[in-house]
């Protein structure tokens, strides 16, 4: 797993590779450090995530709560079909804002 942060009006955190029980804690730490560093609004770009297990959902849930507690929001963009199925199976569309593209996620912050 690799994480790249692009700063902007809303920072875009691009994740690539696999989010599993091995890598999910690194993702939570990076996201939460970023949120607490004065960036409570984040877009997490899933375009290059190839695989995610339930450990990844645990990471998403933890960071969404963290962002909202800090007065911002965590919005997920561009999940690929396999990942999208996992998000849907877990009912995450009801608790996390998920957009088909990064552009739409950016526009959602206004």
């Amino acid at each position: 797993m690799e994480i790249n942060i692009t700063k902007g009006n809303v920072d875009i955190i691009a994740v690539s590779g696999s989010i599993d029980a091995l890598t999910s804690s690194e993702l939570v730490k990076t996201l939460n450090d970023h949120i607490h560093d004065g960036h409570p609004n984040v877009i997490v770009d899933f375009g290059k995530v190839e695989f995610m297990s339930s450990a990844g959902l645990r990471a998403i849930l933890a960071s969404v709560k963290e962002a909202r507690a800090a007065g911002g929001d965590f919005r997920l963009a561009s999940p690929q079909p396999g990942i999208d199925k996992v998000l849907k199976m877990a009912g995450f569309y009801n608790i996390v804002k998920i957009y088909p593209t990064v552009e739409e996620a950016l526009a959602s912050f206004g």
Binding site: S53, L57, A90
Partner: peptide, 23 residues
């Protein structure tokens, strides 16, 4: 199955892995 209508505070992730296996 996970309760898709539960709020974010009420979500429980335990058991989700096995739910995925069976699904």
């Amino acid at each position: 199955a996970p309760n898709a209508n539960a709020s974010i505070e009420e979500r429980e992730i335990g058991g989700l892995g096995l739910f995925f296996v069976f699904s």
